[in-house]
Design a protein around this nucleic acid. Sequence first.
DNA 1: CGTTTGGGTGAACATATGTGCACCGAAAAT
DNA 2: ATTTTCGGTGCACATATGTTCACCCAAACG
Lengths: 241, 241
Amino acid sequence: MRHNGSMNARAAITPRPSIAITRSERKRQTREALLEAALELLEDRSFGSLSLREVARSAGIVPTGFYRHFDGMEELGLALVDESFRTLRQMIRSARAGRQDTTNAIRASVAILVRHVHEHRLHFRFIARERSSGVPALRRAIHNEIRLFSSELAIDLARMPFLGDWSSEDLHMVSGLLVDTMVSTAEAILDAAPDDPAAEREIVRMAEKRLLLIALGVPRWRPSTAASGGERGERRADGPS
Amino acid sequence: MRHNGSMNARAAITPRPSIAITRSERKRQTREALLEAALELLEDRSFGSLSLREVARSAGIVPTGFYRHFDGMEELGLALVDESFRTLRQMIRSARAGRQDTTNAIRASVAILVRHVHEHRLHFRFIARERSSGVPALRRAIHNEIRLFSSELAIDLARMPFLGDWSSEDLHMVSGLLVDTMVSTAEAILDAAPDDPAAEREIVRMAEKRLLLIALGVPRWRPSTAASGGERGERRADGPS
DNA sequence: CGTTTGGGTGAACATATGTGCACCGAAAAT
DNA sequence: ATTTTCGGTGCACATATGTTCACCCAAACG
């Protein structure tokens, strides 16, 4: 048997018949139960190895009931992507708030990342897992969202005075590097023992250092002229020999 | 049905009864057929959603025959990790050969990465996929191997003259950053249309820029004293304000 | 009130899976 | 030449899956 996890089904709707609730509200609840059931089942499996029956069961409804909410697992998956990135966008908004010197901006950003990873562990785990693995539709959706993040970051960066003369390509390069670093930091946190604050502090320290190293490179960057093209081969060997 | 791919089974052993071959050799061939069948089935699925029967079928043997080679899918997966990293280590060896200035070292490293991704596409895809997703045993095995890479890179870096006074922690920080950047570059290449050389050149350009940016930061890094500890909060805001 | 709507049910289907068992036949060992 | 070894086979079983269909019944609506 491939799926041998615990089989306890949890009621979809908390038995609170005290006040009658609207029908659409009840539907929303069950839908939510399905989404959360799926998220929790993904602790040590990939979405691709998740069965419709399993999700329905653990959400407390019968398999056929599933189709009242989604017309298949893939649609459920896309809904999860949506839900996850909604909370992620919320995080970005917080991160955009702070306006400080580089060092503190780095610290603040990493701190926000860490906090949100803890607050939305399941969502982060889901996107970290499905980002590169499994169902193509999900992978694509997630990559699009991440590229969107990176682009928004690039726009933010463009507003910074000391980056005014950078080509948009170079800006996207930095934002991509920063986003990837954040992603791998988030993955590291998710993989760390959830109750080992020392390991996590270590991850945070490293992440901050990485970002600082990148920031240190920025002032030495020779912005390429916006005319991107085949100007390969003559970038000055600027670094250490 | 969840698995609806093409069901054509491919004979495990090319029918070449001309010369009698040793039994163990024949076993090796079937084992190899199983591994490769699995690798190819992973084009758009994760290892966790791969069934023993499917692999056996597509390797050209009967399900129960599978157990003559592995005692379950997990062992197959670990064998794949081994196989994949054997070729990866070979790549590292090539990369270690070049000794040049920073810019050319970057270009050479990226070029080697790209070449090996193409030459061992299936292996790279496998580890990129299973790196963060799916079966815990595989994830752990892969992470260990990657950490090992990172550590070896750190040792190499330590030998460079201009990094002589860096703490080992900082060296690991850089090597980690470099490895992560390479990993995400490899993932980008795998995701790009396999027959779109323009997109790939773009990825390569970006990767080179990322690495150069990092290299530019290196000379400005203030090496932390080996006494790591709670010296938080007084790193000079060195970058752009 | 009566009627319609729609979330949830249960049985049923064809098909898939992991794994145990007895068996075969040729290579390997004696 | 006889026996042993061992990949590979075929069958069987219990169990899982996706999806259909006809229902049920309380909320929503007229």
